[in-house]
Write a protein that binds this DNA or RNA. Structure first.
Lengths: 337, 337
DNA sequence: TATCGTCATGACAGCGCTATCATCGGATGA
DNA sequence: TCATCCGATGATAGCGCTGTCATGACGATA
């Protein structure tokens, strides 16, 4: 393997000094068009690729955007990641992920690692950081975006939606559809799930329909199988339950299948509402009502805010509420009559 | 923000030279227990975190493992990612992803970027790289692991399974279950999909049951909705089709829902087989037959091979076939009789 | 006792880039 | 005409770390 081409090689080739090449690459307008062209030619001929480590060392700042998410396999977060990737496409930035596995401690550790790299920016999930994490974020001298939620006291910038309000809206939809004995299915019970539960509870209480015995939850991870199990447990304990708000679409799909197995007609005998509006809700039979959250856009917005900030331009408002929309489908068509 | 603590700060605090601290951190056995302890104490007191950029510059080698995958939202790849994360947990390595969007050209570009970072190792998806990509990989002086497939001519190391054989096995299962007019549903039609199709075709032809008119494919991305549409199209054109091998579980789920809408009993009237054995196949009603591929383990193995290689130890065989297993469930219970 | 090898540690230089200040020729204005 | 400014380029130093070689102390060996 031949030695890697360096700035100096390019400089020599173009007949200028290394620093001029550096300038031509980073701020082309500060170099005369003539030399700029010669340098561009030399770069192309030599196939020069800048060494990001050297740049990071000299500037004290890397071009890595650190992203901390609880899980890579949860469709919700991979959508956000996808949006982030869209948002940084065409820039010089790179994305580095850390998976916290829903552990605030792990998040804290990973953040320490990221901070050691002097990241260009940080994206973290949610607003429930430990005190130590919070302090590190406050002191990080780079843009920080919290995603997935809204909240009164962001570290820096925040883009997301209110899980409480979204769940409340879904619950209201169930009530308006004519259901009277709604239940709640939840797994994992992380902070976002808890807020959704709070939204369900608030709205159900407002309609005088809240019954703690109709809330079936587990700290275990969410899955379709778990949704089926929770649904059966709920309907066994409270056979008169006539609707379920599921904390996410996986659970809802499991509930739907279990309802089939139990021969409970959906939506007549029991209504089912999911959360996140994954693609499959549309194609299900019956199609599943769900709550649309703009996850890809969330990631893209976070990336855009970071780019604007780093470019020194106007980054727009520091808090963006992308909202969430109940999408009514047949699974909550209401009881007969 | 106070200046970041450096090696020298730690050295001063511990009363040794910087280079000794460097050694204590990287190869503790080369330093006397006494000084090692003093240095550890100093590191803890000062909260020292090494600067990876400086290390990368000095060694000519970063601690980033570059991973190139077609999509972050496809559950298949996020499982692999998850496995990679498991596999590098506790090491000093970091993972950086590039999303190729199923484009060999994009893969080529991203690889160029990664190579500029002098990664510790590379993980790429599949074996269908462009000539340029292939050359870059051949010349990369770091471990390279191809994942998701097996093949006769790996760049370096490879871990995966034969899509052809896995699809053939699934097709054989359909035949053995008693189905006689099997069809194929495929989307995206990327190289892996094509190989699965080839496996289906080979096995169907062997049983004298191949009919090109029973193959419904689209270059568009895969989704549950798409599965439903392809299923309907196939059953409309060839109403006597009695089983479908779906290229993945999303399509299979869509096919299942569409079969419900069309009132075609599964598995009596039509058998449905998926691919990947995502979690939901178990919970579906009827439960979906699928092909189990060991995606998480694939990522973990790739990471382990890299770690072993970089540690200078025995990395084991350079080609690992993780196999794939047909998991029969009720959706392919066979026609009556 | 002289010699050698080994272990623990240190001095020095340099990885490839950029921040900072310096330089220089030429255009501008009084 | 001379001082002034500006745009384009260069020289220098250093970012924080590690590779390499040097050093010194000590015990083993003959």
């Amino acid at each position: 393997m031949p030695r890697k081409t360096t700035l100096s090689d390019v400089a020599q080739r173009a007949g200028v000094s290394p620093i001029t090449v550096s300038r031509a690459l980073r701020r082309p307008d500060t170099v005369s068009p003539d030399t700029r062209d010669r340098i561009a030619a030399a770069v192309a001929e030599l196939g020069y690729v800048p060494n990001p480590a050297a740049r990071a060392l000299a500037t004290g700042r890397s071009e890595v955007i650190g992203v901390l998410i609880p899980s890579a396999t949860n469709a919700v977060f991979s959508d956000v990641l996808s949006g982030i990737h869209d948002g940084i496409a065409g820039s010089h930035f790179n994305v580095q992920y850390g998976i916290t596995r829903y552990s605030a401690r792990t998040e804290e550790e990973l953040l320490g690692v990221f901070l050691g790299q002097r990241p260009a920016a940080l994206i973290v999930s949610g607003i429930d950081q430990t005190a130590v994490t919070r302090r590190m974020l406050d002191q990080a001298d780079c843009p920080v975006v919290q995603v997935m939620e809204t909240g009164p006291d962001p570290v820096d910038m925040i883009v997301g939606f209110s899980h409480h309000d979204a769940a409340a809206a879904a619950t209201r939809h169930l009530v308006e559809a004519g259901y009277r004995r709604p239940g709640f299915l939840g797994a994992r019970m992380d902070p976002r799930t808890q807020r959704r539960f709070a939204g369900f509870r608030a709205e159900a209480e407002a309609a005088d329909m809240f019954d703690p015995d109709r809330c079936e939850t587990t700290p275990d991870p969410s899955s379709v199988t778990r949704g089926a199990a929770l649904f059966r447990a709920l309907l066994t304990r409270r056979p008169d339950t006539d609707a379920v708000f599921c904390n996410n679409d996986d659970l809802a799909l499991g509930a739907l299948f279990e309802a089939m197995r139990m021969r409970l007609p959906v939506p007549e005998r029991i209504g089912i509402c999911g959360f996140n509006d994954l693609e499959m809700t549309r194609a299900a039979e019956p199609a599943l009502t769900s709550v649309r959250t703009n996850r890809v856009e969330m990631g893209a917005r976070a990336a855009a805010m970071i780019r604007a900030r780093l470019a020194g331009g106007d980054a727009g408002p520091p808090a963006v509420d992308l909202g969430a929309l109940v999408v009514p489908r047949r699974s909550t068509g209401g009881p007969p009559g």
